[in-house]
Amino acid sequence: MVGMLERTIAGLQRNNMAGYFVHNRQELMALLSGLMEKGQTVGCGDSVTLEELGVFDFLRKGDYIFYDKYVPGLTSEDKRRLYIQNFAADTFITGTNAVTTDGKLFNIDGNGSRVAPMIYGPRQVIVVVGTNKITEDVESAIQRVRQIAAPMDAKRLKKETPCTKLNRCVDCRHPQRICNDFVLITGQFVKDRIKVIIIDMEIGY
């Protein structure tokens, strides 16, 4: 695993993205505090990893203007306004479906609200990812996301797509399909705009 981590971080750096490694939640929170200035605006993408690590609670309690999409009672229009605000945020924080050892990020999204600000808008994008999401190459990243992550996420979202029953992707055309945007980020024009933090645990999916 050490060799894989070193290759992944080196790959990210070659692609103009910063790579970090932390051992636990405490180190993660300390690093986030150093990367985000007090008072700045922070948007977020939907992420089981961030939820399980307590990052959203960290942002709510911290000295940040947090565009919190998880406030109870938000309408679809309220969420849309938050999604638009994310483009102008100082920091956008999210998970990722897979990171390859040559430093590429692969994601599948339902409506694009997570991947769009990763690509453009926020001055800084912080990606938090567990070691279980490191793959050797893009092909294995796509395989992992389509056959493992997407079916699990569809179940979490209580969709009625075939994958929730079959536990695998069949490239359906169901109206509730969440696999609509396939996005591969291979580099950045602005150096270190995207910062990838790898945490030493299997978390999220």
Rank of each mutant, 00 (worst) to 15 (best):
M1E: 11
V2C: 02
M4Q: 13
I9S: 03
Q13E: 15
Q13W: 02
N16E: 06
M17I: 03
G19C: 09
Y20V: 09
V22E: 02
N24T: 02
R25N: 05
L31F: 02
L35W: 03
L35I: 10
K38R: 15
Q40A: 06
V42T: 05
G45E: 00
L50I: 01
E51V: 01
E51G: 00
R60D: 00
K61R: 15
G62D: 08
F66W: 09
Y67I: 10
D68Q: 10
D68I: 05
T75W: 04
T75R: 06
D78M: 00
K79L: 15
F92I: 01
T94P: 02
T94G: 00
A98C: 14
V99Q: 06
D102K: 11
D102T: 14
K104D: 01
L105C: 07
L105W: 00
F106C: 08
N107G: 04
I108C: 05
D109P: 11
D109E: 05
G112F: 00
R114Q: 01
I119G: 09
G121K: 10
I126E: 04
V129Y: 09
T131P: 07
T131E: 12
T131N: 06
R144L: 14
R146A: 14
I148A: 06
A150I: 14
A150H: 07
P151Q: 08
R156I: 13
R156N: 13
K159A: 13
T161H: 04
K165R: 15
K165L: 13
N167I: 06
C169R: 11
V170N: 06
R177G: 00
D181G: 10
F182A: 14
F182E: 09
V183M: 13
V183H: 05
T186D: 11
G187A: 11
F189C: 09
F189Y: 14
D192F: 10
R193F: 04
I194V: 15
V196I: 13
I197T: 11
E202V: 10
Y205E: 11
